[in-house]
Design a protein around this nucleic acid. Sequence first.
DNA 1: TATCTGGATTGATGGCGGTCGATCTGGAGC
DNA 2: GCTCCAGATCGACCGCCATCAATCCAGATA
Lengths: 117, 117
Amino acid sequence: MAVDLELMPKKKRAAGERCCEPVVYPDVERAHAARMAEVAKALGDPIRLQLVDVLRRHAGEVCVCELVPLFDISQSTLSHHLSKLRAAGIVDSERRGLWAYYYVCPDALKELSAWLS
Amino acid sequence: MAVDLELMPKKKRAAGERCCEPVVYPDVERAHAARMAEVAKALGDPIRLQLVDVLRRHAGEVCVCELVPLFDISQSTLSHHLSKLRAAGIVDSERRGLWAYYYVCPDALKELSAWLS
DNA sequence: TATCTGGATTGATGGCGGTCGATCTGGAGC
DNA sequence: GCTCCAGATCGACCGCCATCAATCCAGATA
């Protein structure tokens, strides 16, 4: 995969010729990138990132009624953010009676974390 | 910071009372979260994530003319994505003659990476 | 049954984001 | 000077997103 690039062509270049050979990019990486980008996109909002942070601090589950007073947004907006995180597979929820409890899916951030480091 | 939560209140709850005490969330974390969310947002697009991936594979710098044929998007759109990555502080560029060379800023992903793991 | 309540859903709105073609910019070469 | 080229920028379009108030739903309580 580690294609050596001819950098800094400087001069002597015919018309239409490119400065270097194109890098081939395997299709396998595309699906991989799409999944990681989906997770990153879900984390690309300060409130959602803080939500995940709170849920991770409490290794177990956290009731929605605890999360609402932490942010200056309406209850419906918070529910919307939690829904997005769940759609991205980052968190999941469980209802018990009137209350809903959210928790971080184990290994949900593993793939992106591994790529970043 | 690790506040013990009283989970599963079940029953015996007066009107207006919440199921548990609210978790205090330090303001310091908010600015921290905003910065990491900015980086995550920039990575929240498959093309941008692949761009960063290509730049990271080639530890040095990569010419834009190498990047264009890798994706099925116009040159202007690619330039737009590179601009977003640069605005987020993830990459930077250098012009030499007609060509522009992009590279990943060292430690740009460090903060988010540390938080994820 | 009726009433209350926590949370999800709906509808509306304003703004942001990805995409393109077209244009502009500045360096290279004639 | 002029022309050509790589890359950035502009203008426009369209769809998605964050937000809210209002509503709906289901479980609990009386």
